[in-house]
Design a binder for these strands. Structure first.
Length: 505
RNA sequence: GGUCCAUUCGUCUAGGGGUGAGGACGCAAGAUUUUCAUUCUUGAAACAGGGGUUCGAUUCCCCUAUGGACUACCA
């Protein structure tokens, strides 16, 4: 085995990219970068019946958004390609045959119908040493019959022959020593009737051929680990086997079980990294990106779901994570996903992110909401003024949009009942002041406003709130006179006019 | 059912034979802010249960309970 660390993320392109998947990518990435290793994206598309068009491109796009760029991938190529298992189809059969020749695997001719029937007949049916001899395969059938079946082109699969009574154990980088009794697992299919390998064969062969040194995957794979271990051994590659790390699962916030996209829909939060449109149904499943998350925050949040650096720090950039990450500090138990905490990470990152980057993100969101920004500098000022009240990028539309676009509606509930002719007069006078004193600072303007209010016999609050609502549309936002200066006196007067109209109506 | 894995505040977690069991999110109260947020202060809130080992266990061991994953010609 070469010393150089090589890791891979190996998703199946069947739909949206789940949060847990992104975390697996992240841990792969962190580990690779930390060891100056190579991070590979390999597409596991061996199930042709589950092929979904666009899913692979979508996955690449997600990785790009997260800033987790692979060194080798279908898109980018590399010395160990192809990186799409469907394009490697021809490679797998020889290994399956080798296994059969050496007695570690066998041909099985049972049809799906026969298997289904067997499962109905026998409650806990497993295609393994218990029932192997009752089935139609090359261990139970006479040699001639097997030959004849093979020659006649009868469909068959290759199954691994799981031994009985062997204890197989390995050291998982996260959970330590794990052991299994081999006879308990069934004889997994290695090569399907269509000639494609199953996951079990494909991971082992490809991990070997691609010289993978460390294999990260979800905990759901733990039960099939003995099959993979055996395959490494039978294929004669035991010495090159990667070190395994089975990551804890991300669980539903309520109840129990793995987090699924259905939970997101039910509880009102995204589960996928980016929104995914099902090409068949047209259904759109929302993503963190579209919900207004910064990739920096998304990544940070994911890293902290099951890992910590042992201090009380929670905010880490990707570079800091690369530096601090260690598998030994990954927890063993699954973690329930908490959307409130996820939002908190985003809030913190909005405050923390470098001004220019944040501005670029906000510009995108504005563009999507038809808010045009002629002046980038002004946007910078606006962001500085409002970012403390934004938790998601999309909040900037409401919190900052009115600097570039007059409010479309007014929240008048608190104003209308107490409205008087005198107040209208007050605002007419104030509008005059605005037009006549354009050089006043925000502070001086405030003084003028207060003077006028006192003169007309109002308490400041009585006219301040209506003014705010005329400017921004609602009861929110930074200091009103700062807003006035930024949008300009003329625009402020226009808003007073329309505001007065709306109140009078 | 079987196998494997796990178990500290509601949630994410730190800790580790003697601690006031720490932090964060969320929640509650208060202060600041003539709006809304931000910020600050304070508070409530946890070692699943039972046996050992030990002078002493939340910590080490065993059992139980609970939860989860897996049990496809899907990954």
């Amino acid at each position: 085995m070469s010393d150089k660390v090589r890791v891979r993320f190996a998703p199946s392109p069947t739909g949206g990219l789940h949060l847990g998947g992104v975390r697996t990518v992240l841990f792969n990435y962190l580990f690779a970068r930390q060891h100056q290793g190579t991070f590979i994206l390999r597409i596991e598309d061996t199930d042709q019946s589950r092929f979904v068009s666009g899913a692979e491109e979508y996955i690449s796009e997600c990785l790009k958004w997260c800033g987790l760029h692979p060194d080798e991938s279908p898109e980018k190529g590399g010395p160990y390609g192809p990186y799409r298992q469907s394009e490697r189809k021809a490679i797998y059969r020889q290994y399956a045959e080798q296994l059969v020749q050496e007695g570690h695997a066998y041909y099985a001719f049972d049809t799906p119908e026969e298997l289904e029937q067997k499962r109905r007949q026998i409650p806990n049916f497993q295609y393994g040493h218990m029932f192997r001899s009752e089935m139609r395969n090359s261990t139970s059938l006479p040699k001639e019959e097997v030959k004849q079946l093979l020659d006649s082109g009868a469909p068959y699969v290759v199954r691994i022959k799981m031994p009985v009574g062997e204890t197989i154990s390995f050291t998982d980088m996260i959970r330590g020593e794990v052991s299994f009794e081999t006879g308990l697992s069934d004889d997994k299919v290695l090569l399907k009737a269509d000639g494609m390998p199953t996951y079990h064969l494909a991971v082992v062969v490809d991990d070997h051929l691609m010289k993978i040194t460390h294999a990260f995957r979800g905990e759901e794979w733990l039960p099939s680990a003995p099959v993979h271990l055996l395959l490494w051994k039978y294929l004669g590659w035991e010495d090159d086997m990667p070190q395994w790390a089975h990551l804890p699962l991300i669980l539903k916030p309520d109840g129990n079980g793995k987090l699924s996209k259905r939970d997101g829909a039910r509880l009102g939060f995204p589960v996928y990294a980016m929104s995914w449109t099902d090409p068949a149904s047209g259904e759109v499943i929302p993503g963190f990106r579209e919900r207004g998350f910064l990739p920096e925050a998304f990544i940070n949040m994911l890293a902290m779901l099951g890992w910590n650096d042992g201090t009380e720090h929670e905010l880490f950039s990707l570079d800091e994570l690369v530096e601090k990450f260690s598998l030994g500090r990954v927890s063993k138990a699954g973690a329930k996903f908490d959307f409130e905490k996820a939002k908190w990470f985003n809030t913190e990152w909005i405050k923390k992110l470098e001004e220019n980057k944040l501005r670029t993100y906000v510009e995108e969101v504005f563009a999507q909401n038809n808010i045009s920004v002629p002046d980038r500098d002004k946007l910078g000022v606006v962001i500085g003024m409002v970012k403390d009240r934004c938790h998601l990028l999309t909040d900037f539309v409401l919190q900052g949009g009115y600097f570039f676009k007059s409010p479309e509606s007014f929240d008048l509930d608190a104003v209308k009942p107490k409205w008087t002719e005198q107040k209208e007069e007050f605002f007419r006078s104030f509008a005059q002041i605005l037009l006549e004193h354009r050089s006043l600072s925000s502070h001086e303007l405030e003084e003028k406003f207060k003077e006028l209010a006192t003169e007309k016999g109002f308490k400041i609050g009585e006219v301040m709130l209506p003014y705010r609502i005329m400017l921004v549309g609602g009861k929110f936002g930074p200091a009103v006179f700062d807003i006035t200066k930024l949008i300009g006196e003329e625009e402020a007067v226009r808003r007073i006019d329309t505001g007065l109209g709306a109140i009078g109506a």
